[in-house]
Amino acid sequence: IRVFLPNKQRTVVNVRNGMSLHDCLMKALKVRGLQPECCAVFRLLHEHKGKKARLDWNTDAASLIGEELQV
């Protein structure tokens, strides 16, 4: 999953079965001084340019493999 972060940063996270978005993104956020409780995560909708859909931090990350997200 490719993730666009604040301050023009980005990362790619690996996903294993059973992991939530929170689990996958925790380290990437922590390294940058961010906390999931203070952030929202969105899936970028490529079929609708510029649109995005808000996701819950408990979403199964395996269902988002190959997607691009924005925090």
Rank of each mutant, 00 (worst) to 15 (best):
I1V: 03
I1C: 05
R2P: 05
R2I: 15
R2Y: 09
R2G: 08
R2D: 05
V3T: 00
V3N: 05
V3A: 00
F4E: 11
F4I: 10
F4W: 13
F4V: 14
F4P: 01
F4H: 08
F4A: 08
L5S: 00
L5Q: 06
L5G: 00
L5W: 13
L5K: 01
P6S: 00
P6L: 05
P6K: 05
N7I: 10
N7C: 02
N7S: 07
N7H: 11
N7A: 04
N7E: 08
N7G: 13
K8M: 09
K8H: 13
Q9R: 04
R10A: 14
R10G: 10
T11F: 11
T11D: 02
V12M: 10
V12Y: 09
V12I: 10
V13W: 00
V13R: 01
V13E: 03
N14I: 08
N14E: 14
N14K: 11
R16K: 11
R16D: 09
R16G: 07
R16P: 07
N17D: 15
G18V: 00
G18P: 02
G18E: 07
M19R: 04
M19G: 05
M19V: 07
L21N: 02
L21D: 00
L21G: 01
L21T: 06
H22W: 12
H22S: 13
D23R: 04
D23T: 13
D23V: 08
D23L: 03
D23Q: 11
L25G: 01
L25M: 07
L25Y: 00
M26A: 15
M26F: 14
M26H: 14
M26P: 03
M26C: 14
K27D: 13
K27L: 08
K27V: 08
A28H: 13
A28S: 10
L29F: 04
K30E: 14
K30W: 09
V31C: 11
V31I: 12
V31S: 14
G33T: 05
G33K: 11
G33F: 09
G33A: 04
G33R: 04
L34H: 02
L34E: 01
Q35W: 05
Q35G: 08
Q35P: 06
Q35T: 14
P36V: 08
P36W: 10
P36N: 03
P36G: 03
P36K: 07
E37Q: 05
E37F: 02
E37H: 07
C38G: 13
C38D: 15
C39I: 00
C39W: 02
A40L: 08
A40E: 15
V41W: 01
V41K: 02
V41D: 05
V41F: 02
F42T: 01
F42S: 04
F42H: 01
R43G: 07
R43D: 02
R43H: 13
R43P: 05
R43W: 03
R43I: 02
R43Y: 15
R43L: 09
R43Q: 09
L44S: 11
L44P: 07
L44G: 08
L44M: 14
L44E: 08
L45E: 13
L45F: 12
L45N: 15
H46M: 09
H46Q: 11
H46S: 14
H48S: 13
K49V: 11
K49L: 09
K49T: 12
K49G: 14
G50K: 07
K51S: 08
K51C: 10
R54W: 08
R54H: 10
R54D: 07
R54V: 09
L55G: 00
D56E: 08
D56V: 01
D56W: 02
W57Y: 03
W57S: 05
W57D: 04
W57E: 06
W57R: 01
W57G: 01
N58M: 09
N58I: 06
T59D: 09
T59Y: 04
T59S: 07
T59K: 07
T59G: 01
D60E: 12
A61F: 02
A61M: 05
A61S: 08
A61N: 04
A62D: 06
A62K: 08
S63P: 09
S63E: 10
S63Y: 03
L64V: 09
L64Q: 05
L64E: 00
I65H: 04
I65W: 00
I65C: 11
I65Y: 04
I65P: 04
G66F: 01
G66R: 04
G66D: 05
E67L: 05
E67W: 07
E67R: 03
E67S: 12
E67V: 03
E68C: 11
E68W: 00
E68S: 12
L69Y: 03
Q70P: 00
Q70I: 11
Q70Y: 13
Q70D: 04
V71R: 02
V71N: 00
V71A: 00
V71F: 02
V71P: 03
